[in-house]
């Protein structure tokens, strides 16, 4: 740890304080990482070892990808992964188009219809759509039992919209006026001037949308009858939480739930894409894109 940036008034911390902080941080990080590690280790352990050890493995005697091979041979999980990937990509792209369009319009002063539309958005904060009436809308629009039901009802998040509008508002209006005087149209200003300045906020909002699509299991539960159309999160839910009480009450895996090593491998497969994207966007949180916008 470097102490170069400590201000003069702050005395050198005692060794005891430093040690206590170090221990506290280590414990917290361990509490976060250890459960994920156990899941990873269990999924790579031989299935017999998991059973012999009572349901988990912390350090497998032998790292094997056997469980994953079984899963991919069965076809159900790969299909769910494809569904999740497609829904996440299509949903995030559409969400960004809708959010950028509306946020940009609402960020411009005195735009036509700006006031009532902003009120419309804010009202959804006060009273989010109820589960039952939203189901009726999905039914009424003919989206029931189609992949569209997995993203159409959640295309726009008012929170993301407000974050993005706040960011657009911080673009100096002189820049926009100057571009107008140079003869640039509104579309050109958005695409060539504002969006390049907004890469950070687009990355963060895009991640929020992508994660919300990837993690959503509930749309699959209520809108899709056919389990072969389920995304990964819905499948995972039926693998794990579905038989949860039975497995816990008896302490042994009932016939209706998947073996533990399969469950854990599915958890890993559902988590990995988030872990892959996260580091690329994470630096923007630390930089404070979000806090600036949230506080606005």
């Amino acid at each position: 740890m470097s102490h170069a940036n400590r201000p003069a008034w702050m005395g050198r911390p005692s060794r005891l304080t430093t040690a206590a902080k170090g221990i506290a941080i280590t414990v917290i990080v361990a509490l976060m990482v250890f459960p994920m590690w156990v899941v990873l280790a269990t999924s790579f352990a031989p299935a017999e070892e998991v059973v012999a050890n009572g349901g988990f493995v912390i350090w497998p005697s032998d790292w094997t990808s056997g469980t994953y091979e079984r899963i991919f041979a069965a076809g159900m999980v790969p299909r769910a992964l494809l569904v999740s990937l497609g829904v996440t990509l299509v949903g995030t792209a559409l969400s960004l188009v809708l959010t950028i369009g509306l946020a940009y319009g609402l960020s411009r002063p005195a735009v036509f219809g700006g006031k009532p539309v902003l009120l419309m958005v804010l009202f959804t904060f006060l009273m989010p759509a109820g589960m039952i009436p939203l189901f009726l809308v999905v039914q009424g629009t003919g989206l029931l039992n189609t992949f569209g039901a997995l993203f159409a009802p959640m295309l726009l998040s008012a929170f993301n919209l407000i974050v993005m509008r706040g960011f657009f508002q911080s673009v100096p209006s002189e820049l926009i006026e100057a571009a107008k005087i140079d003869g640039a149209g509104e579309l050109r200003i958005l695409l060539r001037l504002v969006l390049p300045l907004s890469k950070a906020v687009i990355a963060v909002v895009g991640l929020f949308y992508a994660v919300s699509y990837w993690n959503n299991f509930f749309n699959g539960v209520i809108y899709l009858d056919d389990s072969s159309m389920w995304p990964m999160a819905t499948l995972l839910r039926s693998f794990t939480s579905g038989g949860l009480s039975v497995a816990d009450a008896t302490g042994e895996a009932g016939s209706q739930i998947a073996p533990v090593s399969v469950q854990m491998a599915v958890v890993v497969l559902a988590t990995v894409p988030i872990l892959v994207v996260y580091p690329f966007v994470q630096r923007f949180f630390v930089k404070g894109v979000l806090t600036g916008a949230v506080k606005a």
């Binding site: 459960p35 999160a233 995972l236 939480s241 816990d248 958890v267 559902a270």
Partner: peptide, 11 residues
Amino acid sequence: SWVIVVALFTQ
């Protein structure tokens, strides 16, 4: 996802 968190806690 909450599905993952619940699975982690159960494990």
